[in-house]
Design a protein around this nucleic acid. Structure first.
Lengths: 343, 343
DNA sequence: TTGAAAGCGCTAACAC
DNA sequence: GTGTTAGCGCTTTCAA
């Protein structure tokens, strides 16, 4: 066999003794080709191991078949799991996913918004951390974008997310339903752009209010980021309080798993002394001891919807108004809130 | 501002009143351009918000600036962490990473080997699960490939890995040094292509032999895959043995964390009754209770080397002999083997 | 039903 | 130092 994958349409055409157009017709399954001709061309295609040159196709046709997934960190389990689903969903539509890792850095996110990959990707699915409405509103690049998370008023940007207030309220209400009265929260953020944190904090407050409980500012812990280490540190601070909490709502599972480590190491019994609930339902939460109660957003749906929105936007252009989809969530009680059965 | 990112070189040239070549020179930082001209062109570039068309560039120059990372699962923490490093390493060389997720399925891996992305990517970093030497040897596609894992004799394929036998031996010897005498292993695989599993099993045997211990086939557990659930199931079987082990070496951290869950749930004390060690040093292992002892391959080095090998191969072509790089590993003792201090 | 030719945006070779 | 032109591989008119 010759050097594989290096043959062009005209090479194939030459071998088959036909025109380039005819080969192209066969490759693209154009209907009006005689079966004799189709067979003859196919033989030549096989012999030369022809593969279409995607760049040429893109240059001509305008679509690359590539979409970007721009997330803070690929190795944060939530994003890793989401990425898996996005890759699969994209695949079903013939798209390939390339990765932009922002680390939540403003400058990196700015590049994503500015369309650093214009002319390479057909669209981008973006999970911002350091960017909010102002940054997104001034976007001049016209590459279709789907936002993961909260709606950004202004720009014509589609988005998909969940009802964070309701989900957080459900989590905290679950803790309260166990009879806990000093419920702490870990995950508050200072940054203007931390919309999700703000909504979850609001859900937390709302649940307390719903049961007629006063909120205690000392029980609301601020964190730098959403890693296990942040949760561990915040939990240590809570334990050092004159009156420590009897339950903790963490704004994601990673924070909760870090908090759990601190609790167990300090000899605190979970859930007997302190109940715990997280957010995201990453796989890891099913295997900690005790297993972690959490809130489960439907990641597969989120991914599928994001890709679908991109596809729709690509078909319709920028004229139709921006769409927003709210995906469902589910409360998942496990051992850290006293559940017995495995899940 | 006009529709952003839609201007071509000739648009810019027209606006600036110069030739296409001159604009190209400025864009590509060609030296011999008068600074007056450079400034004039730059103004036009800015005004039209010019972005180079990557596909055109690729079509012309032959390189796409894209590499593929083909791994079984993005959401397995080891691969998620590795992917993070690969994206960063690629970025430093001006490459963008696209993801192929094989799920370890033979057919999907076959496509990767056959070069499903020929003419799109400059190279591919491939972590095979279901493919071995025979599958790789018949590879006809000429896209540079770097294999993650063991060497495949035959094909001119570069690879980067670690000394799995030595690493496994170190892990098991660590268990033996604690005075354990019935050391089990979880992670053996039936599949012909499971080279890594075979090497780790060999290291396990070698460590036993090194201390003059006989191996017990009943203590070597086979698993379907390397997830937490497999580890949990295998551990349950080990506990059901007439003479359960007093230590367990798991072929990766996920298996170990699943095993840990089973042990703790069964009321077995870790490490007092059963010591445990894993492999990979995923972040999660630092936060389980007790924290998980493990073997740490240098993922950042592995990623950097893989990308560097790709770059070198791209420069040299297929003529130079295939290279293999063995990256270092490190034993990381933690609480599951009686370590006190935090790590 | 098949062929010829133009052109997508870019770079490299060559001219001025 | 700057301009002209050919051509990368493909699809899309338009002709035959």
């Amino acid at each position: 066999m010759r050097t594989a994958g290096r043959a062009s349409l005209s090479d194939v055409a030459a071998l088959a003794g036909v025109s380039v157009k005819t080969v192209s017709n066969v490759v693209n399954h154009y209907e009006h080709v005689s079966s004799a001709m189709r067979e003859r061309v196919q033989r030549a295609l096989d012999e030369l191991d022809y593969r279409p040159n995607m760049s040429a196709r893109h240059l001509r046709g305008g679509r690359s078949g590539l979409i970007a997934l721009a997330v803070p960190e690929l190795d944060a389990p939530y994003f890793a799991e989401l990425c898996r689903h996005v890759v699969r969903a994209a695949e079903r539509r013939g798209w390939t996913v390339l990765i932009d890792q922002t680390d939540g850095m403003p400058e990196r996110e700015r590049l994503v918004i500015a369309g650093i990959r214009a002319h390479l990707i057909d669209g981008v699915i973006f999970s911002p951390l350091a960017s909010g409405a102002p940054e997104l509103a001034v976007r001049s690049d016209s590459t279709p974008m789907v936002l993961l998370g909260e709606r950004v008023s202004g720009g014509p940007i589609d988005h998909v997310g969940i009802d964070n207030v309701a989900a957080a309220r459900a989590a905290v209400d679950h803790l309260l339903s166990l009879g806990r009265v000093r419920v702490a929260a870990i995950g508050k953020q200072q940054r203007r752009t931390a919309v999700t944190a703000r909504l979850r904090a609001r859900g937390y407050m709302s649940a307390l209010r719903g049961r007629g409980l006063a909120s205690d500012a000392a029980l609301v812990m601020q964190v730098e980021s959403y890693h296990r280490s942040d949760g561990a540190t915040a939990m240590a601070a809570l334990l050092a309080l004159p009156k420590p909490p009897d339950a903790v709502f963490c704004f994601n599972d990673l924070l909760a798993l870090g908090a759990l480590r601190t609790l167990l190491q300090a000899g605190v019994r979970v859930p007997d002394d302190v109940a715990l609930i997280g957010f995201d339902d990453i796989e890891e939460s099913r295997y900690s001891t005790p297993t972690l109660s959490t809130v489960r957003p439907d990641k597969a749906s989120i991914a599928e919807t994001a890709v679908a929105l991109l596809a729709a936007r690509l078909d319709e252009g920028a004229d139709t108004p921006p769409r927003g989809v709210t995906e469902p969530f589910e409360l998942v009680p496990r051992e850290t809130t006293g559940q017995r059965a495995d899940q």
